[in-house]
């Protein structure tokens, strides 16, 4: 694999022309599915992901219910046609099961769960097209879907991954970079205090690399948070426009 590794950085630019700390273009649209209590769609580079929120509703099966607070059930899945490679299997595989678990844990921290004892809040994340960084984009869009559903939250978290290409730390790896990078570090952050809600990593980095990764993710947060908030405001701005 080392032999045919493509050159990922040429003249200080990445394969898609981005700088090292530059995000791919991100577009989010809120409330696009009628049946869900809240929903959102994100295009993050070539990633296309839908998120829908159902609940709070009675937790089923009943033994899963917590009498003191709502339980969060996230389900991250990739459509069988979503990648450039062969036809995938539908439903969650082991990777998707792990991502669903860590995604639930992000929102367990952020949702005011004690307001809804005995209930469950379902978060469905469907990756329709994938191009690297889908778990981060999934968390970012699920945040918007939860807010659109009117679920009370302490914050509007975002996620993005940092990585290492050769000796260079970079932000927001795409699929090719992810395949051949030396490290991938997805993080989810609570913007109000910068606390880390999700942290995974594999590859090889030093302690200093990790600190650089965190500052890159933190800096990108300003851009991502603004896109999230604009998406939530947009439907209301249309209404205001109509009655002006």
């Amino acid at each position: 694999m080392e032999g045919n590794k493509p050159q990922l950085i040429i003249d200080g630019k990445r394969t898609d022309g981005r700088g090292f700390d530059e995000l791919r273009p991100i577009k989010i649209e809120a409330n696009i599915l009628k049946n869900a209590n809240g929903s959102a769609y994100i295009e993050w580079g070539n990633n296309k992901i839908l998120a829908a929120v159902y609940g709070p509703k009675e937790a089923l099966p009943k033994h899963t219910a917590d009498p003191t607070m709502a339980i969060i059930k996230s389900r991250y899945t990739m459509a069988p046609f979503s990648s450039l490679e062969e036809h995938g299997r539908s439903g969650p595989n082991r990777r998707a099961t792990e991502i669903s678990k860590v995604t639930s844990e992000v929102f367990e921290n952020i949702i005011m769960r004690e307001m809804f004892p005995g209930t469950e809040i379902d978060i469905f994340i469907e990756v329709l097209q994938s191009d690297g960084g889908t778990r981060a984009a999934g968390i970012t869009v699920a945040s918007v879907a939860l807010a659109a559903a009117g679920i009370p939250m302490y914050d509007l978290p975002y996620a993005v991954s940092a990585g290492k290409i050769g000796d260079q730390m970079v932000l927001d790896l795409n699929k090719i970079e992810d395949n051949y990078s030396d490290a991938d570090i997805p993080m989810a952050i609570s913007p109000r205090n910068g606390d880390i809600l999700l942290l995974q990593m594999d590859g090889s980095i030093t302690k200093e690399d990790f600190s650089t990764a965190y500052s890159m993710v933190k800096k990108a947060g300003a851009t991502i948070s603004k896109i999230q908030k604009d998406a939530l405001k947009a439907p209301y701005e249309k209404i205001i426009e109509k009655y002006r």
């Binding site: 367990e108 606390d195 880390i196 809600l197 999700l198 995974q200 594999d202 090889s204 965190y214």
Partner: peptide, 20 residues
């Protein structure tokens, strides 16, 4: 002392100082 893998779990948070 190269970091090879990291995994955060559960509903709580860590600050960057704590992780370092």
């Amino acid at each position: 002392n190269n970091i090879k893998a990291m995994q955060k779990g559960l509903h709580g948070t860590f600050s960057i100082k704590e992780v370092e």
